[in-house]
Every structure is written in structure tokens, then in C-alpha cells.
Design a protein around this nucleic acid. Structure first.
Lengths: 131, 131
DNA sequence: CTTTGTGCAAAGGCTTTGCATGCTT
DNA sequence: AAGCATGCAAAGCCTTTGCACAAAG
């Protein structure tokens, strides 16, 4: 049993973590990559993929699947929540649904299921895009 | 404005529709393809993809994304419902959640979102796999 | 006969991986 | 100095598409 390995502090990882804290929405690995390079930080695409995976496993980043099956990532705040995602501009809101877990558990239990997990995303049009 | 085009009745499409009615679970396009061929019905993979898409657009088939981002399909009964999927054996149950749409609408409206759609899947362990 | 469906193979797009090099520690 | 991280390019996988042929209406 060795110490839990801390990832090394590299320019690329730092840049990505900073960017994750700045931009609130869900972006794909390729979009994070473009955004980094657009800001002048040269980072390889493979590195972005590897770093996002690493951060996801570490629980510092949230991954969801878009309806197209792409992986999209964002920094996650603590606590369990769901996402409300604008179809128009991609803006995302974290939605607390306090009753949902209990309710899902209860619903599943009626079918003999236990140990319930769930994936829930809401998609809609935000006020700006609706205007 | 012409009549709504009915798809042509072909051996391949019939075989897939029959199989969809027989197997209750979610399978990927490739899995449906394998299953067809395993049963002696030779159908091209591209045809399976195209037919599943066509059936999905026609509302006769349900598509969900697996956590890996793969598209998985199954015949769907009428009415909107969600899925309760066993992590152990893949068994799926259709769950009617009558209050959910209203509730999701209300929750989203608080954030100025409208025209809400959602994706909800529940994952758990069924009675058999729990034994 | 006309139109749509099929099959095959090739192309596309996202993601992962192998390997040599550079940077952290 | 040792080892993980990076970059690039190549490979992998799922899925879509182009095209010629077959089948349905």
C-alpha cells in the first residue's frame, strides 16, 4: 500500500484546472482543448483527454453524455445535483432536486431493485434563447 | 405535400421488427446485428443502423445512451416512460413516472427555462442479482 | 418501370494508445 | 537520476455515407 499518488503539477494541467473554474458550462474534451489554445495556452488534445479523465476519477470533474453520445465535462461543486442545459446556447444550471433520490429509490423498490443510481439531465430553452 | 411515406416491407426490416418484439432489453445496433445473424438471418450492419434510426424516428423504438456513449435500442411501448436498468444482468423495466414531467417543468421554469425535455435512466440491482 | 432498401467498403469523428522526449520531483 | 506527463501520430471503435445492385410497389 503506497501513498495515494498526487498528479504532477504541470503547466498543462494547471491551465485546464484554471479554465474549468472559469467556465461554468459543459464542454467536450475537444472544446476545452480549443478554448485553451484560443487563449494562447498550447496543450495537446491527448493531454486534455487524459487530464479530464484523471480529474473525473478524482471526483473533481463531472462527466455527462450529450444526446449525441459525446462526453462533456465541467468542474463540479460538491453535493449531488442535476443539470439543466440550454439547447440553444449550452448554458447550464445546477439544479438541486432534494426529493428526487428518495423518490427514485421508492419507485425502484417497487420493482425489486436496490442500490439505485441514476442519470438525469434536463434540456430546455433558457430565457435568453427564448427571446 | 405527399402522403406520409410508409417504409417498404423487406425481409431485413421484418426480421428486425420481429426480434425487437421478442427481446425485451436494450441492445446496441451491433448487438441486434449479431443476434440477427446468430439466428441465421443475414442482414448487413449498415442496414441495421439505418432501420433502427428509421424506427426511432417513427417512434416505434426507444434509443438511450449507455454510460459508454453507445446508442442502445429497444422496442418501446406507447406513452412516455423511463427505464430502470439492472447493473447486474441488464434486465430493464419500464417505469411510469406520472408526476415527473410536471415536476421537471416546474423546476426548470424557476430558472427561466421552457420547452423542457429530459433524459432519465435509473440504474440498480434487481432482486435476482441481489440474491 | 420507378423508387426505395440493401450490402459492401470507405470515410468520418471521437477517443485511446504507443513511444520517444521533456519536465517534476 | 527516476518516473510520470506530454505530444504527436497512428490505431480503434462506433456510426454514417457513397455507390451499384436488388427488391418492392
Amino acid at each position: 500500500m503506497t501513498e495515494p499518488q498526487h498528479p504532477r503539477q504541470t503547466r498543462q494541467r494547471a491551465a485546464l484546472e484554471t479554465l474549468l473554474d472559469e467556465l461554468p458550462g459543459f464542454l467536450t474534451a475537444q472544446e476545452w482543448h480549443s478554448e485553451l489554445n484560443r487563449r494562447g495556452t498550447k496543450v495537446g488534445l491527448a493531454t486534455v483527454y487524459r487530464t479530464l479523465q484523471s480529474l473525473t476519477e478524482a471526483g473533481e470533474v463531472d462527466m455527462v453524455r450529450t444526446p449525441e453520445g459525446l462526453a462533456a465535462y465541467r468542474a463540479c461543486s460538491t453535493g449531488h445535483h442535476h443539470h439543466l442545459i440550454c439547447r440553444g446556447c449550452g448554458k447550464t444550471v445546477e439544479v438541486e432536486l432534494p426529493d428526487f433520490e428518495r423518490w427514485a429509490d421508492a419507485a425502484a423498490k417497487q420493482y425489486g431493485f436496490a442500490d439505485i443510481d441514476h442519470e438525469l439531465e434536463l434540456f430546455g430553452l433558457c430565457g435568453d434563447c427564448r427571446a
